[in-house]
Simulated assay, not measured.
Amino acid sequence: MASNKEELKLFGMRLSPFVSRVEIALKLKGVEYKYELEKMGNLSETLINYNPVYKKVPVLVHNEKPVSESLVILEYIDEIWKQNPILPSDPYKRSLARFWSNFIDDKCFSAMGKTFYTIDEHERETSIEETKVAIQILENELNDKFFGGEDIGFLDITAVLIAYWLPILYEAIGLKLFTNDKFPKLYKWSQDFNNHPIVKETLPPRETLLAFYIAHYESLAASK
């Protein structure tokens, strides 16, 4: 637990998968923090001062020292609070967790975004195929209950983007990609992950997230 002398704040938004990563890690470690809610499109001056380079959430502020970017924050949390480690102790396994986490952000998130924001049917089909290829690669990498073995680890937390956000994002635009038939190992992993007590209490309500993406997509389509 953070001592009385420590001050820990998380600047975030409730519907952000990147903020959820940080919340899950903090709660897995039993670390207390204060949540500073930011508004989309109307970020506070405090947040911008803490993260002047990217001007976005999440930002973790520990004793007035800001740490930005969700994967960097996860590593910081694991280094500061040693209980319930999320990164493997073995250097090689640790490097793999980092590699696949970067893969999720570089390949999976990128393809998901292109699918959601693309109206052109040909371009969308291309991005859907890119997503399938990326998800299949992850499917092939999963050999235990979780990517971290029997317990949730760094890569599982990173992959909340796949476990929770991807199916909802695709449902919002009328697509169904992430199914038990197509990706049986990942699908079961996602169910175990989403239903983990700490993860479950951290994730935003499904109905709220789906309604947000439907409204956002309809707005995008209307503006084309």
Rank of each mutant, 00 (worst) to 15 (best):
L28M: 15
H62R: 10
M40P: 02
E45Q: 13
F99E: 04
F147T: 05
E75P: 13
E121Y: 06
E130F: 01
A159I: 01
G148H: 05
T46C: 08
K27Y: 05
M40R: 09
S89Y: 02
A215E: 12
K82V: 04
I168C: 07
P204L: 01
F11Q: 02
L155F: 10
N42G: 15
L28I: 06
H216C: 08
G12L: 01
L203H: 04
P85T: 11
D90L: 03
L8D: 10
F99K: 08
N51R: 06
E32S: 15
E125Q: 11
S110T: 14
H122A: 15
W100Y: 07
V53N: 08
L37D: 14
F99I: 04
E38W: 04
Y187D: 10
Y164F: 13
E6P: 07
P184E: 12
L37Y: 13
V57S: 10
K182E: 11
I24V: 07
T202W: 01
N63E: 14
F11E: 03
R98G: 06
G12Y: 01
E123Q: 14
K27A: 08
T131P: 00
T46G: 10
Q83I: 13
L47H: 04
P184Q: 12
A221Y: 04
I157L: 06
M1Q: 14
N49A: 15
F178P: 03
R124N: 05
E121W: 00
N102Q: 11
